[in-house]
Amino acid sequence: MAELDDKLMQQFQKGDENAFTLLVRRHQQPLINFIAKFTGDRDNAEDLAQETFIRMYKAADRYKPGRAQFKTWMYFIAKNLCKNHIRNTGRREKFRVDNVASKYNDNGENEEDIDIIAIAPADTALQPEVAIERKELRHTIQSAIAELPEQYRYPLILRDVQGLSYEEISKILELRSGTTKSRINRARLMLKNKLKPYMETI
């Protein structure tokens, strides 16, 4: 995987534009997923992903194959863009949107929007179907992630959503391996505590 990325980058550095397109095809989905999960803002995730690729395109001559992986470089840029985005847009408004789950009728039409965090632990009557439960659980998880402090949110998403190794995460976040491991464990414990009221009701 990493070797193929390196080869494609080398080809691009020699002037082959198609090599960069291939790199985008390979990494667009995980990148958008990472940004959407991290910012909790699916609408802007694609814009931020595009900005990430544009920056990589412009800085391609500085990429040194073998020294850093394309993937870690990509997440490193995306992480900084996400930070700026969150700083500029503000968290509160975004999270309010995240906390809203939709309830659908039998025809798949949206009947009503529900604030999951507000109702989830107390009112089990609003969770009649398994499908809705699953959907709500996912929204609750997403909201819980969004509420985690940044220093815990990054490694948690990179590990459990993106499936990166501890070594890769350490490089992206510029942390020692031990720190990365302890932060991920801490983030998982925080997530567990946030989900506890909800999980105990289902």
Binding site: T21, R138, D160, K192, L195
Partner: peptide, 27 residues
Amino acid sequence: KLFRESVSELQQLPQDVPSPDFLSTLQ
């Protein structure tokens, strides 16, 4: 048990996929 379930659920979150015109817009 709660820890394991939480992490498992997190790992099974549906992936966000790019819209069909993502690549063409980028190009």
